[in-house]
Design a protein around this nucleic acid. Sequence first.
DNA 1: CGGCTAGCCTAACGAACGTTCGACCGGGTG
DNA 2: CACCCGGTCGAACGTTCGTTAGGCTAGCCG
Lengths: 201, 201
Amino acid sequence: MSISRRDEIIVAATELFARQGFHAVGMRAIADAVGIRGSSLYHYFPSKVDLLHAIAQEATRSFIETQLPSLESIPSNAARLRELIREHVIYFHEHSQEEAVGLRELQELRENLPEQYVALQEIRRSYQNAIERMISDGIVDGEFTCDDAHLATLAILGMVNSVNDWFREYGTYSIERVADAYAELSVGRLLGAGDPSPASE
Amino acid sequence: MSISRRDEIIVAATELFARQGFHAVGMRAIADAVGIRGSSLYHYFPSKVDLLHAIAQEATRSFIETQLPSLESIPSNAARLRELIREHVIYFHEHSQEEAVGLRELQELRENLPEQYVALQEIRRSYQNAIERMISDGIVDGEFTCDDAHLATLAILGMVNSVNDWFREYGTYSIERVADAYAELSVGRLLGAGDPSPASE
DNA sequence: CGGCTAGCCTAACGAACGTTCGACCGGGTG
DNA sequence: CACCCGGTCGAACGTTCGTTAGGCTAGCCG
């Protein structure tokens, strides 16, 4: 009742794609994981790359929808960006498989589902633009000292997106600790904003 | 005479693997790219994953060999790390296909050539340790202000390794400009080292 | 000159691939 | 009861996969 068979397929395929890669996973392997036959998958998805597209779209869309609204209420660019990065790291950790597929197998969509690929790229681009605008505004307001908002955006995104490559549960750090640290490294250090709680100064 | 057929195969396979992914490229496609038949590849490599291993090994080994020696002569940790990051970005750009394969298809080696995978991981780990030690030493010497050398290492590596995901020749920036900027962002900002030319102070 | 071998070929192997087709089965609706 | 239809199935399609086996040829070595 709670989750549909379609969602069940998406969950199983996400795990397999994340672990082994799109081309290394056959339709029959996905079907096995949910206890049906390969041919039955075509009742839910017209093709294998459409299944991939459903995964990537859900990963991208739900990430953006979770992230962007939380920005509205925070006044300063520095505090807002700090919170954004914190939540970015934590969301990526909680949905590491989906986001791994979304980042790594985009090339497949580009070649086989070009217009859906473009749509996804536009969503990602809008997220990147939101960050860049926060940084630009923060520079104008004097919150940040930074030469190039565009480069800083790319650098920060590269940083936060790479956490899943090394982070392991039950390691030295908790994900919240890493999220806090990366927010401070990005906003406090890279962008040169001051201490987040100026009362201590 | 200049390059052997074996190297020719490695070059062609690297390009195909980088563009389409290991599993999306067949042995016959690689053979076509060098003008021979698929079966002839087995005269040079015992299997497809051994070919991948040759690529990944060469990418990792030659990168490390190019990078590490250049550190010896530079005295301060800050200047040495700056130069390391500069060269890292530039090397990754000049060998973007090799490094893309080396980073993305490691999972394949892990499952099929486990001991060779471990060997490569050890090489990468030694590079990471070299960076971390530079940062630790710099903290002790008072060059850097930074809480956690390990986290800073991972953050910087994530930053510099992500340049190839967005950098395009003939774009806004030259690769040297990006390399300089990332060195400054990492050492000057993230680690809190001062201006690289203290004469201006 | 005779033989070895590096390099490449054609042919084929069994397995797996993504996908299609037609049929069946069971539960809800008229 | 008769009907429909969502969901699943077995079987098969043609293609491609990684890999193997065996044979040909050209050049080097004795």
